[in-house]
Amino acid sequence: MIKVNGLYKSFGKLEVLKNIDASIDEGEVVVVIGPSGSGKSTFLRCLNLLEQPTSGMIHIGQEEITNKKYNPLKLRSNVGMVFQHFHLFPHMTTLENVTYAPIKVKGLKTADAKKIGMELLEKVGLSDKADQYPNRLSGGQKQRVAIARALAMEPSIMLFDEPTSALDPEMVKEVLDVMKSLAKTGMTMVIVTHEMGFAREVADRILFMDGGMLIEEADPASFFTAPSSKRAQDFLQKVL
């Protein structure tokens, strides 16, 4: 589903991603962990071309998205993204947030988009908030709306960049629960998170990054019990 070959990304002189090779299968849930500044967000943002890779190749499905002629808009309606700080549109109601892109990008009829939107809000447990503006919602509710908004485009891949890092502790679970049930539907997911318990439980595979490099990849059981690299051992010692 996703194939990354020799991916490099620099910001000016700063080399942030160095020779990343990775491949992610359809329906797989991959959790990316690593210390802050190791390039996890940048890696994720390369996958939907929010960042333009400096060199290397990324294939999504059959398409080489790193090809200069490739239209990023086409990619992005197929790859949903959820941000740490939600970025809901504050001037739109919850339902409008969810239906905006299906209507304006996919050209869905308003009535159809609303129906789908309500179903999605139902799924994330917020159908009663459809007409509220985002500033009336708690952080956890905002993030669940953001997930529904991304899902409304019916993407085949979902990217999560620290979706619970900006939340009060008591709200983390409600968001992780939504993500868990999404994982059960067979959605392909790439998740950057510091929630190690969640990673262990939900991930099919762990990617560990440090210093812009992909240091280790393993299934969660072996990664959390016996990480093979020294850097991963040090990292786990600090966070667990």
Partner: peptide, 27 residues
Amino acid sequence: VDKGQQEAAMALGVPYNKMMKDVILPQ
């Protein structure tokens, strides 16, 4: 306007003109 607004719109595949008109300018 928070830069995240543009990113959120871009991540949804919203073209530049619509993003300006519907997301950025109203804010």
